[in-house]
Amino acid sequence: MSLKLNQHISREYNAELERIRSQVLRMGGLVESQLTQSVRALRKADTSLAVEVQNADGRINQLEVEIDAECTEIVARRQPAASDLRLIMGVSKIISDLERIGDEAKRIAKMTNTDLAGHLPEHMNMEIGYMADLARTMLHDVLDAFARLDADDALEIAQRDRQIDLKYESITRQLITYMVQDVKTIPTALAVMWAVRSLERIGDRAQNIAEHLIYLVRGEDVRHVPLDDLLQ
């Protein structure tokens, strides 16, 4: 059953649901840009960009509070049922995951340090860039799937978290090797370790969002179900 927000007899209700959807997309866009900027700041050791990222996090938190309040109001005034109810419940979980992704971006920005610049081997820098791209694309695509309320895409996106996990493991292994070989690299390696840990968590959160999306479109709770089972 495809999900349509705009066919209620009450036009005001259509508008309210539509507004919630566009607010989530706005919040998602902001989070995505925070992630991009934080990784750029880290890789280029751009501390002033890093400060900007940290300051912008407040706007994301504020949007979460606003959307949450609108969801509560709809529950109180409209008593949503079926797909409308799932949309509201799904959105309130999605925005909480988005807010956490925002926090992780802020954490990545915090790891930015001018000392990093010289100490990060070029190919490590590229590895981080590659992992960040995986996370960012995953977030971007899941928001895009949300805009279209597309559960099939969400299912495909949910599986990408594995690639991010693998990348995370290989980067941490390399970082450990650096630290063992040369103790002077330890501060840098630890900072990078924290940052990739954040990227790994962002993958988890994006997977959560994909799962909430599947639930809100199809009405099936796919959390804690092995993804292979779903694909069969």
């Binding site: 209620h8 007899i9 009450s10 209700y13 079926a82 797909s83 109810l85 799932r86 009405g219 099936e220």
Partner: peptide
């Protein structure tokens, strides 16, 4: 009321 199987039911209970 959470996930009806038929579109007609869905439309009715959600006011579409």
């Amino acid at each position: 009321f959470t996930h009806p199987q038929q579109k007609q039911t869905e439309d009715y209970i959600t006011g579409r």
